[in-house]
Design a protein around this nucleic acid. Structure first.
Length: 802
DNA sequence: AGCACGCCGACT
DNA sequence: GTCGGCGTGCTC
């Protein structure tokens, strides 16, 4: 007998192990490890992943697999192992990790329906719902308030049955093609017979005589300015035929990618790439940290390292932060490797993502460029993994499984015996420290390609502006500089760090700030819709006219949002044309790309935006970059705020003067003396590293210590606090004496969505039992978690402490 | 998670 | 005696 060991699609503590299922004879040759199957589980039918196929089970009441859902395994042996490891590292359920490795569309969908079995007269109440049909949706039954007990009774009597259906959401897109249905010489003969009045028909047949290959109907119709009627007639005459062709949704269809050749490498590029080439050649799973300033030509190094890998017949994974996955970036990879490249990022529709994934799965491509989850590309012969902008926080998934793509990359690198290259102008402190210790191989590229220096950075002290009577958000220096660029027909990028700085609404009479009733977070004013919105839950209300506390009408909004900056800009510089990029203006698919194109074409002088414009933009005509307020980020309750500020400022500065025209950067701040501001303006990463390391050392933060953040949430504040307290006690009891346990403390945002949040932080150097202890704690609370709305969230090496 | 089972109080 | 609400435990 053949038995499948299956992880079932039920994310819970008690089902987080394999279940044994008999493989029926007719499926014996079909079921393989890594496939999805549908199977009976209790009274239901659900999806599961086959982890293993064996020929015996200790369990004696085996049920059988119902169906296989895939023709070939969707997870390779390596990915199955990797998933196990990730689940254990992040304390997640196996099923969550396996799901995270696949495109959303492969997630099973469940449907329930009720079927009437006999002609037996059902009770009127049910009869009414069926309304003559043999089968109705269970959802419909619920919606129309069906009597559940009555239903159960009839199920027991055998008059109706409940069917459970497992479906894959997977879809295939087809296009209609038209092709000749006869040999060319027969078409020629037929051409004679077509009436001279049927001009279009003649033209079309003539076309197919010249080009006998199938052509898309849509194209044919536009070319000949005709309608389907014409074609239908020819199909009826058996001269043409219609073909449904399965096609990939190609998100980059219609984009021409000009093929590029490898560029000659500069000396420093050469020095950086040699050790990587060597590692590829010697099949070493070495980790490289490529520390290269903006514009030092890191991408060309990646491209030529990949070229080497492709030469060996192997595959490459390139990770790029979501927001940096711009058309410009894609262009570079597609330009060099053409159709060998698949692209995976969140702006694609689920169908497009699935099709790109399928290309990888079917081994039709050799290179994948994508955001975090592309690290799970089902390649089987990886030759290199590259993580660009390795310091980016988006490489850490912020939901279960909370994995970091960098750690997964290292694991995959070890499996495939291939190098992992981490690239950044401002490496994460942890990474640079490892490189200095020799754990990673450090590669330095300190010079810009075109020999140009980084643009000079001016720091403007906004306190002086205030003192001089300037109460606007623009310093005099910045305004003058913007005007100057506009006069010279050059372009400006203005960056607004909106986090923590959004427009909140306050009463000037009593100082009351409008807050979300669910989250204790200040509501943000959206001018376009005239609404107050909470950014943490869906709560939104119309803008208020009177203060809810004191009733006065002196309500006004404070803070700086992009919308407000745009208005102020127009007021101060009426001749300026502005393109605004933020979550509001880029929500629609493709709008991101469109806005950037408009700016690139010179349709505006100023590009104003949030985080999303900090990366990867490369416009020749941009000679001024302004940062309106760095302080918001500097003062976040996060030990990495200085590092994040430094990274951001460096990145933003890199947007100016990338080409022939010299650039300039102006940074506005209320704390110009802060070391991260000072050192960023001098582009002194090394010094920043040393100084920041001092801080980390004295406060026991990474990279000197590891962190674990446990966040407990519950609708009842007392409960949340009490559980956190107990957890702290348990950790204190079972962890070693070297671990520091902080807490319980309220989270920086105590209440979100009517749930109170408390946290506990562990600082440690080496706690091999930690994960086991945390698992035990979770098990201890499993009843509360499952039935009493408690959540215990565990984040190892967290990126965000909120 | 989602479902059945079993216990208990409330009710025809 | 039976219905329905809720707590408990299982699913190969």
């Amino acid at each position: 007998m053949r038995v499948a060991k299956v992880i079932v699609d039920v994310p819970s503590n008690q089902t987080n192990h394999t279940f044994d299922y008999l493989i029926p004879e007719k499926l014996e040759n079909l079921v393989q490890k890594g496939m999805r199957v549908s199977l009976p589980f209790g009274p239901r039918k659900i999806m599961g992943f086959v982890l293993d196929v064996v020929d015996h089970s200790d369990f004696d009441k085996l049920k059988s697999i119902d169906e296989v859902m895939d023709l070939t395994p969707v997870l390779t042996e390596e990915l199955l192992q990797l998933g196990k490891w990730i689940s254990e590292q992040t304390v997640s359920f196996y099923i969550q990790t396996y799901q995270a490795m696949l495109p959303q569309i492969l997630k099973a969908k469940y449907k329930k329906e009720i079927e009437a079995l006999t002609d037996y007269e059902l009770p009127d109440e049910l009869q009414k719902l069926f309304a003559g049909r043999a089968v109705i949706d269970y959802d419909e039954f619920i919606e129309r308030n069906g009597n559940y007990n009555l239903l159960l009774k009839e199920v027991r009597n055998g008059h109706v049955q409940i069917n459970y259906i497992v479906k894959s959401k997977e879809t295939k897109k087809t296009k209609l093609f038209i092709a000749p249905d006869k040999e060319t010489y027969l078409l020629e003969e037929a051409l004679e017979d077509i009436s001279n009045r049927a001009k279009k028909q003649k033209q079309i047949i003539d076309y197919f005589i010249q080009h006998p290959d199938p052509i898309e109907q849509k194209e044919l119709l536009t070319n000949f300015k005709t309608t389907t009627a014409t074609i239908n007639q020819l199909v009826e005459k058996k001269l043409l035929k219609k073909i449904e062709k399965k096609v990939y949704r190609d998100p980059y269809q219609g984009n021409e990618f000009e093929r590029t050749q490898p560029l000659p490498l500069s000396k420093q590029q050469q020095q950086a790439i040699e050790p990587i080439w060597q590692a590829i050649e010697e099949k070493r799973d070495q980790v490289f940290l490529l520390h290269g300033v903006t514009g030092s030509g890191k991408t060309e190094v990646y491209l030529q390292a990949i070229a080497k890998v492709l030469n060996q017949g192997k595959e490459a994974i390139v990770l790029v932060p979501e927001i940096a996955l711009t058309p410009q970036m894609v262009q570079r990879f597609k330009g060099r490797f053409g159709s060998e490249v698949a692209v995976l990022h969140s702006a694609l529709s689920p169908g497009e993502k699935f099709d790109e994934w399928t290309k990888i799965h079917k081994q039709e491509v050799k290179v994948v460029v994508g955001a975090r989850s592309a690290i799970f590309a089902p390649f089987e012969n990886i030759g290199i993994i590259i993580i660009d902008e390795e310091h980016e926080t988006s490489y850490k998934q912020d939901e279960q499984p909370r994995y970091h793509a960098r750690e997964v990359a290292k694991k995959r690198g070890a499996y495939h015996n291939c190098p992992v290259v981490l690239g950044s102008a401002t490496p994460m402190l942890e990474s640079y420290a490892r490189a200095k210790k020799g754990v990673y191989h450090l590669l330095e590229m300190p010079d810009r390609m075109n020999e140009g220096a980084m643009p000079p950075v001016d720091i403007v002290d906004m306190r002086d502006e205030l003192y001089a009577g300037n109460r606007t958000m623009f310093s005099r220096k910045l305004l003058d500089a913007i005007k100057e660029r506009i006069d010279q027909n050059q372009q400006v990028v203005l960056f607004l760090n909106r986090r923590g700085y959004s427009t909140f609404v306050m009463c000037r009479e009593c100082g009351d700030v409008m807050k979300c009733p669910n989250c204790d977070i200040a509501l943000t004013f959206h001018k376009s819709s005239h609404q107050l919105k909470c950014h943490y839950c869906d709560h939104q209300i119309p803008m208020v006219k009177e203060c809810e506390t004191c009733g006065s009408n002196t309500i006004r909004y404070f803070g700086t949002g992009t919308q407000k900056v745009e208005e102020a800009l127009k007021e101060h510089i009426p001749e300026a044309s502005v393109i605004r990029m933020d979550v509001d203006t880029t929500r629609r698919k493709g709008s991101h790309k469109k806005l950037l194109e408009q700016f690139g074409n010179g349709q505006a002088n100023i590009l104003l935006g949030t985080q999303m414009i900090a990366k990867g933009l490369d416009f020749e005509n941009v000679t001024l970059v302004g940062v309106l307020a760095v302080d918001a980020m500097l003062h976040l309750p996060d030990f990495r705020s200085a590092e994040k500020t430094f990274q951001l400022m460096t990145q933003v500065s890199g947007r100016a003067g990338r080409h022939l025209l010299p650039g300039e950067v102006i940074i506005q701040t209320y704390t110009p003396e802060h070391y991260s501001v000072q050192l960023a303006s001098q582009y002194d990463y090394e010094q920043f590293f040393l100084q920041e390391m001092e801080m980390r050392k004295s406060f026991h933060y990474p990279p000197y210590y590891f962190l674990t953040l446990i966040t407990v949430s519950h609708p009842n504040q007392w409960k949340a606090q009490e559980v956190t307290k107990t957890i702290c006690k348990l950790l204190y009891k079972y962890l070693s004496d070297h671990a520091t346990i902080l807490g319980p403390t309220p989270s920086p945002m105590v209440r979100i969505n009517n749930r109170y949040r408390y946290q506990c932080m562990v600082k440690y150097k080496d706690e091999p039992n930690q994960r086991e202890i945390i698992r035990k704690i979770q098990e201890h609370y499993y009843d509360d978690i499952q039935r009493h709305d408690l959540t215990i969230q565990v984040d190892f090496e967290p990126y965000s402490l909120m």
